[in-house]
Nucleic acid binder design. Structure first.
Length: 271
DNA sequence: AACCAGGGTGATG
DNA sequence: CATCACCATGGT
C-alpha cells in the first residue's frame, strides 16, 4: 500500500518541523516525523543527504513539494544573510535545513491566534484537541485535518471550552466568521502588499501585529515579514544590537526563523 | 506562591 | 504615544 520516495534535499525535517512555525508535526522514533497538513497525512525522515517520504510521486509533486518549499534555494539566501553579521551567520549555520513551510493560511492564522501568551507544548495540545473534536478524520487513519473556518464559524465559545484555549476561543471564532464572510479577504491578502495584509488581518479581534506577521509569513509565504516575540526581542537587543528588522531585506522571515530557533536552542546566551 | 508562555485589548497617564 | 492590569490555563 504505502510507497516510499527518496529525494536529494538540503531540507531537514527535524529543523523545519520543530522550529516553532508549525504545531502538528511530531517525531515518532528513529528520526521519523509525521503530521497532517492541507488535509493529508505524511511520514518522512532524513537519511544522509536525502529525504525519505512515505507518499506517492504524484502526491509529492502536487502537494509536498510545494508545502515543504523544496524549490527555493535556501543556501543562496543563507549566504546573503550571513554577510550581514557574524551572529546571523552562526544562527543560519546552526540549522541550515530550515525551510519556511507553505502552510494553509487559515490554519496558520488560527494557530498563531492560539499561540498568543502561550507556550509551544500547550499550543500543540490545544490544536490537537481542536482537530480531534472539530476536524474531519482522514480516511484509513487515526488522524484529523485542521477544521475549516466555515466549521469554526458555526461554533460558540462554549463549544470550544473542551479544547481549553481559554480567552483565545472568542478570538478564534471572530477570525472564523470574518474569514468565512469575506470581511477579511484572504484572496486580497495573498495578492496585495504586506501592509494591506497587516491591516486586513488586524480587523480580527485578538489579532495584533505579531499574530498578523506570523500569519503572513507562515500562511501567505510573505518572506519579508519579521515576527517579533519575546525571544526575538531578546535576541535583537542582546545578540544583534546593530541590526533592525529592515536590515534583513526581502528574506527577513527566513532570518527571523534562524534567529528564533538559534535563540531557543541556546537560552544560556541570555542569562 | 509568584512568574512565565511565539500577545492583545481596553483603560489610564 | 507609553504604560499597565487583565485575560485562561498549565507548568515551574
Amino acid at each position: 500500500m504505502s510507497s516510499y520516495i527518496e529525494i536529494p534535499a538540503s531540507f531537514d525535517p527535524k529543523q523545519t518541523l520543530n522550529c516553532g512555525q508549525a504545531f502538528r508535526w511530531t517525531e515518532d522514533g528513529d528520526g521519523w516525523w509525521h503530521g497532517v497538513a492541507r488535509g493529508r497525512y505524511l511520514r518522512l525522515r532524513r537519511n544522509e543527504d536525502t529525504i525519505i517520504m512515505e507518499c506517492s510521486q504524484s502526491e509529492l509533486d502536487s502537494l509536498w513539494h510545494d508545502y515543504l518549499d523544496l524549490a527555493t534555494d535556501y543556501a543562496a539566501i543563507r549566504r546573503g544573510l550571513s554577510q550581514l553579521d557574524p551572529v546571523m551567520k552562526s544562527a543560519a549555520e546552526f540549522a541550515p535545513g530550515i525551510h519556511i513551510l507553505r502552510q494553509d493560511p487559515w490554519e496558520a492564522l488560527c494557530s498563531f491566534i492560539i499561540s498568543q501568551n502561550n507556550n509551544i507544548p500547550r499550543i500543540q495540545l490545544i490544536i490537537e484537541r481542536l482537530c480531534e473534536m472539530f476536524g474531519e478524520r482522514i480516511s484509513d487513519s487515526e488522524f484529523y485535518n485542521f477544521p475549516s473556518a466555515e466549521k469554526l464559524a458555526t461554533l460558540t465559545v462554549d463549544d470550544l471550552a473542551p479544547i481549553k484555549a481559554g480567552f483565545r476561543a472568542k478570538y478564534m471564532i471572530d477570525a472564523a466568521r470574518k474569514v468565512t464572510t469575506g470581511e477579511v479577504d484572504f484572496a486580497k491578502v495573498a495578492a496585495e502588499s504586506v501592509d494591506f495584509g497587516r491591516a486586513e488581518l488586524q480587523k480580527i479581534v485578538g489579532v495584533g501585529p505579531k499574530v498578523a506577521e506570523c500569519s503572513l509569513l507562515y500562511g501567505f509565504h510573505k518572506m519579508e515579514c519579521f515576527p517579533i516575540d519575546v525571544w526575538m526581542k531578546r535576541a535583537m537587543s542582546t545578540l544583534l544590537p546593530n541590526l533592525t528588522p529592515e536590515s534583513f531585506g526581502e528574506h527577513a522571515g527566513i532570518a527571523q526563523q534562524y534567529i528564533f530557533h538559534y535563540s531557543r536552542m541556546h537560552p544560556e546566551l541570555f542569562e
